[in-house]
Nucleic acid binder design. Sequence first.
RNA 1: GGGCGCGUAGCUCAAUUGGAUAGAGCACGGGAUUUCUAAUCCCGGGGUUGCAGGUUCGAUCCCUGCCGCGCCUACCA
Length: 722
Amino acid sequence: MYRHLELRLAETISAFLKARFPAATLPAVVIEQPPKVELGDFAIPMFPFAKPLRTAPLKVAESIRDGIGVIEGIAQMTVAPPGYLNVTVDRVWMAAALASGQLLPAPGAAGKILVEHTSINPNKAAHIGHLRNAILGDTFVRLLRYAGREVDVQNYIDNTGVQVADVVVGFTYLEKKSRAEIEALTRQPRFDYYCWDLYARVSQWYERDKQNLQARAQVLHAIEDVSSETAAIADLISTAVVRRHLETMDRLEIEYDFLPRESEILHLHFWNAAFSKLKDAGVLTFETEGKNKGCWVMRRAGTEENTDNTERVEIEAEGLRIDTYASRNTEPTAVRATHIPTGTFVTSDTERTQHKNRERAMELLRSRLAEIKAEKISEEHQKVIVRSNGTVGYVGKDIAYHMWKFGLLGRDFGYRKFYRYPDNHDCWISTTEGEKNHPHFGDVAEIYNVIDTRQSEAQSTVIEALRELGHNEAADHYTHFSYEMVALTPRCAAELGYELSEEDRARSYIEVSGRKGFGVKADDLIDQLIASAKKEVDSRHPQLTDSERLSIAAQIAIGALRYFMLKFTKQSVIAFDFKDALSFEGETGPYAQYTVVRATSIFKKAGIDPEAFAKEAQGSMSSKHFGSFLNGENGDEFWGLWLTAAKTSYVVDQCVAATEPAYLAKHAFQLAQLFNTFYHRHPILSEADEGRRKFLLITVAIVRRELIRILEVMGITVPPVM
RNA sequence: GGGCGCGUAGCUCAAUUGGAUAGAGCACGGGAUUUCUAAUCCCGGGGUUGCAGGUUCGAUCCCUGCCGCGCCUACCA
């Protein structure tokens, strides 16, 4: 609603200025928000117009104010120093529009969107870092859907790598378990925890004796034969762990549509199809010498093709040795200059004097060093896609996979059903030969990959490959949704019983590591949050049954966790600490949930259904009456609440455009905060004035409805009581 | 060495992407009509936005150079 009016205002002013000053070329009208409600609802800086119009900013503002006439939904315009045109919305008009509850039609961007997130290696339990990924990804999916887009959710499963092989090594070499025994273990409730410990043990075992790495090589080799016992064990383990990951994420209301697996990318020869296209387009080149001899390489993303290095190389005196010797004639005029650090040397004997030979040798040495440097750079700029033994690396497979995503590969997966959610939604998984009837995945218009910032370079390389293949449009619609990692504070690590080095203790955070088994497991954290919430609920609502209290505690725990992961902007490293994560007060999910519960309890006490009341709200009060409150004594306060509620779709647009869900978290908190102040200041049910009571109730109904909607986009539901 | 990112209150983070007096939460100190349940609200102290320049009507934000920190920089996935 707010956004709609903003756009209309910008258009009207732009048209007015164009008509008024036909000769001038004017910049676009920018609309901002004033820092205070009293100043108005929109602020338009006049500074950019001052120069082209040769008029003082304040004068421009005045001419717009006096000349523009009536705009629907706008009540007044004021001029404010040092050069703003402040615009006040017709509060009654906007409130009526909001109360009507109709959502504006979505901008109508066509085409399906594919969001990929989670993608945990299926060899261990999910940890807090994975939670950030999944919660960011899932919330972004909800944001896109709120904005009216069609979205498929994928979770990529890398089930062929060394990590899975390592766990196989653990089971077969360290634990000497048979296939049947392992199969029995996979049916344990938290099989992924078992793998977590085992994986860490295997890493230690490798470290103790490098010879042990041979076990990994053997397992990797054995897995290649799909019919082998080892391959069956690897599949058993990875599939069981994937199922556990889905269960963990299901606890947080996170669902997937499709799980593409790396094993099918290999077995269905996606790479072969991609390889021939990449060769034909000249994206890959075959190296015949140098350190990458025998490999197919690609230019690394973000590097320049042209590396002619003409800049002068400086040679320091201590790195240089000059020898003179005699050649041809008896005079020692020939010079050999050696660059000691690199061992590079040149000789010169063509000049007549030693002095001249020395000068020439220096020049030769400089250019030789420059050449070496240039060669080195170009090698550094190479990314190996196909190894000299003919196998393809991770980036190559990723290129093929992304060609599939955009429907550019000419091949498809087989599909079968893998996991059914409580709401009967099916999650599909890739197979070589699948079921006949399956949904159509891939072939999408836009993709978002939620992957942490450490993978930025690999992601750019894939985008670059698409671009060089000539698929510019696909490359333009490929977004790496990049975010920073979750680390542990030294205090948190100490609490968990890890021994820290002096160095680590001094850091502000320490990176988690699955390989070392160092981190906080997702299910452990969820369990702790639930236990902590349950304690509160137990003491507050002893009259409820235990299962009721448990379900409320679970909702609160999820609210706390999801909000915690969303309130930080993507670029900020989350230094995880139990104290902050387990907090239910202040800027937290439970604060927002509690706000809704408060609103609900008003209606409960009054015996009114809040939903029905919100629907009727529009017609049940005259606009004159409405206006008397919105423009009256506490008008600014009431209006601030209404206006914030109206901004939701505007904030959602911002979140999508900037791939930044944190804006929505801030918005939820702001609205909740405004409501709580309002709640405290204005008793409603005891209000004697019938009309005023009704207005306050309508306000509560609208804010409640909006807040529920916002929380839903964040994947947070609200318990009946708290 | 190169690439990306960060540096804001005691701590953890914001700042509508260049706008009006840099804001929240936590922590700390003080207070709130016994109610629509206090998982709440109000008040208070706290800041040379790492340092030095530059760009302009205006810089936490853009540019340059330093200082400090993190990540990436494998024929591993």
